[in-house]
Simulated scan of single mutants.
Amino acid sequence: MQEKDFEELYAACAPRLVRAVYAVTGDLGDSQDVVNEAFACAWSRRRSFGEVDSPEAWLRTVAMRLAVSRWRRARTGALAWRRHGPPDPVPELSPDSVALVRALRALPEAQRVAVVLHYFYDLPLERIAAETSTTPSSVKSRLFRARASLEHLLTDPVEETTDVR
Rank of each mutant, 00 (worst) to 15 (best):
E51Q: 09
Y22L: 15
R72L: 11
R145A: 03
A74S: 13
L123C: 02
T61A: 10
R83Y: 10
A14C: 04
G85V: 00
A11S: 07
P136A: 01
S31G: 07
V98C: 10
K140F: 07
C13T: 13
R83G: 04
E160T: 06
S94C: 00
D88N: 10
W43S: 11
E109P: 01
P91D: 15
V101L: 13
G85T: 08
V24Q: 12
A99K: 12
W81T: 15
V116D: 08
P157W: 12
P86Y: 06
R127I: 15
R82N: 13
Y10V: 08
S141W: 06
R46L: 05
M1H: 09
R47P: 00
A57N: 01
V115M: 07
D122T: 05
S54R: 03
P124C: 06
L17N: 03
V101E: 14
L9P: 02
I128K: 00
V115N: 02
V35I: 03
V24H: 08
D30I: 11
A20E: 14
S31L: 01
D5Q: 12
R112V: 10
P55N: 08
A130S: 07
F6L: 12
E56G: 03
G77K: 07
Q111D: 15
E8R: 05
V34K: 03
S54A: 09
A148R: 10
E131S: 08
